[in-house]
Nucleic acid binder design. Sequence first.
DNA 1: TCTGGTAATATGTCTGCACATATTATCTGG
DNA 2: CCAGATAATATGTGCAGACATATTACCAGA
Lengths: 233, 233
Amino acid sequence: MTVGEFKNWQAVQDEVRRRIHARIWAPGEMIPNEQDLAEEFGCARATVNRALRNLSDAGLLERRRKAGTRVALHPVRKATLSIPMIRKEIEDRGQSYGYERLLYRRGTPPEALLRQLKARESDHFVRVKSVQTADGTPFVFEDRWVNLTTVPGAAEEGFADTSANEWLLTHAPFTEGDIAFFAASASDEVAETLGCEMGAAIFVIDRITWDNDRSITSVRQYFRPGYRMQTSI
Amino acid sequence: MTVGEFKNWQAVQDEVRRRIHARIWAPGEMIPNEQDLAEEFGCARATVNRALRNLSDAGLLERRRKAGTRVALHPVRKATLSIPMIRKEIEDRGQSYGYERLLYRRGTPPEALLRQLKARESDHFVRVKSVQTADGTPFVFEDRWVNLTTVPGAAEEGFADTSANEWLLTHAPFTEGDIAFFAASASDEVAETLGCEMGAAIFVIDRITWDNDRSITSVRQYFRPGYRMQTSI
DNA sequence: TCTGGTAATATGTCTGCACATATTATCTGG
DNA sequence: CCAGATAATATGTGCAGACATATTACCAGA
């Protein structure tokens, strides 16, 4: 029994990680309860709790009251999927960022989109198409609908000079969002805007955000051919 | 001053969320310190700490010792990006799952991949190509390299009947991983395996996992045309 | 044997206190 | 006026104890 060596929750966490990893505690297997671990590690139960809770959040452990704690069979890794701030991404590469609004027109989204947005009859929308460039080369073509009823400030803004993404991020907080990633062949319009050939494979992101059941915006972003969205887990 | 109403950390968290959302505390603005909030909410400082820490983890707040806590200017949303367990995904749709190994051959990955893997001279690899089907229709075509040196059990396994993904998830725990998502045009081989036309836009995932600097596997998954990877934030 | 109630148990959380630590603000001497 | 030492402060964390809560295990009665 190693005693009195793990006195902070991070050390406990590391040790538990090590044991899981070294198969001392195999996947699916129960691990000792908090009280016993606290005694073994020479710390308070709260410290062990903090460590185990963290590992549970991370998906490495599964905990249930009374049932105890077991090593997860299929660890679920969580990746931070920040809403891509295109400007930041481009500037981080040392390239110059550009934004151009291509269209700004009030109107009503198609039926299917309205349903997805869970929009109300009274909601008014504006459609904004834009392109963002890196060193002058098209980077993303964006096709967006903004709900003017829930985001009234958007009507005055107009998004002529700054991307709707940035403006909305700071002016229209959202509580929920759906994201989808997929591949699509470049349509006529996409190909022309991005300066690529028709039919080229394009990485596309669909995103809808809500503020407690009130839709804020729906956006589809077409990335220039070859774009890779990367993250670590 | 609302007093004595928020006695658990979730209630405190909800109230703080509400205030941020209602612009009582605007983005970039400082919020009161933990002691004051604890007094206002009628609870212990530790409870406020737990709530604020959680919101900080969620990206809604930014905290720094001595400097205090402020509302994040650009909230970073985290999405759970579970490593897609194709079988589960297919079975959840009520479809029948199928797996077929197309190739199993020892060899050495190309130079570029070896570098990405941070592989050692002595590492041995096996290449596994496979296809997973939903109701008999091709769903994913997978091209994988497995490091036999770090995952010795893989040599006996062979992946003839079960997908390498599933086997590795439970038999080769990883500590780190890189993921990339992108779109590509279906090559000859991809088109034939997935039963689609050459040049079709295909959603592709590249993933490399490590066990403390020892590479485990590198995999490229080509999804059948029309596939959407979805998640919420 | 089955069923419903009860006890046991592991995790979840709160409290009050203490001290650690990072960072800012302030003061002091040159 | 500037630089470096020092104090002040907000968050980070640990501890012991207590109670809450979910869930399992067990037992008694039909």
